[in-house]
């Protein structure tokens, strides 16, 4: 057979790479037995792909470690070559000179944004509460006290003063939540009308005391303050109740 092959180099390449459909592949294979010229053309396209892969895999260890903006919060063994203080310093530098990158940076920037973040999350979480959320919570006094004790251990703080009743508001349960790897304690209360109220607490060691202030989150009212290494946020759908309850808690601590 000396008839000219009907296949282009591109088609033969696709055949070698397994990219032709079954029918086209079968056609080439069946033609091979009767067309020695076709086999010769395939030979001319036979690149050592296995060796190419091995050679390029040998290059991978030459890669530099991932830069700090990727690696800072996700240490890998490669990053261990760089000392932590250096990572933080470079991360801050990257943050300072690069375009705004939200919360991808580490170190000082995280410290600054973290407080805003946990309050947003906790408030949004509370926005999902309806009266039934807490009405169905029927722990007895001993169970509730055990929850408070466990949450207090997690937070390394005595929480009992914060679960005292206020007006018609009674304590219903304590939950251990988490934010950025740190415990976030939520003490849930309910008024006589069924309104859910939450006191959320995180540790903020080293942060200065901050006086009570109020802020709206959609139609929820939040009260925030920081005292002796703990940051608080009280939140409910009743602005008056939130403010009065918050003042009474601040006076207790």
């Amino acid at each position: 057979m000396t008839t000219k092959s009907p296949y282009s180099d591109e088609e033969l390449t696709a055949f070698l790479d397994g990219e032709l459909d079954d029918a086209a592949s079968a056609a080439i294979e069946s033609r091979l037995s009767s067309d020695p010229g076709l086999q010769a053309r395939l030979d001319l396209l036979a690149a050592p792909t296995q060796q190419i892969r091995e050679a390029f895999d040998a290059v991978l260890p030459l890669s530099p470690a991932p830069p700090p903006h990727i690696a800072a919060a996700q240490p890998t063994k490669d990053v261990a070559r760089t000392t932590p203080w250096k990572l933080t310093a470079v991360a801050c530098l990257v943050a300072a000179i690069a375009a705004p990158v939200g919360w991808i940076v580490s170190g000082a920037f995280d410290q600054r944004t973290k407080l805003d973040d946990w309050r947003d999350y906790a408030a949004a979480y509370h926005a999902l509460y309806v009266p039934e959320t807490l009405s169905s919570s029927d722990h007895d006094a001993a169970q509730r006290q055990a929850q408070v004790d466990r949450a207090g251990q997690m937070l390394r703080a005595e929480l009992s003063p914060y679960v005292e009743p206020f007006d018609t508001v009674v304590f219903r349960r304590a939950q251990v939540l988490g934010f950025d790897g740190e415990p976030l304690i939520q003490l849930a209360f309910q008024s006589a009308s069924g309104l859910p109220i939450a006191l959320c607490i995180v540790r903020s060691d080293g942060a200065p005391d901050v006086d009570l202030s109020f802020e709206d989150f959609d139609q929820l009212r939040t009260a925030s303050w920081t005292r002796e290494g703990l940051s608080f946020m009280l939140i409910s759908g009743d602005a008056e109740l939130t403010e009065a309850f918050a003042k009474s808690i601040v006076d207790r601590s």
Binding site: T13, A46, A47
Partner: peptide, 14 residues
């Protein structure tokens, strides 16, 4: 992509 690979294979082949 096909034509680039075909050209590369022609140069890399044994």
């Amino acid at each position: 992509v096909m034509s680039r690979l075909a050209a590369a294979r022609a140069r890399l082949s044994s």
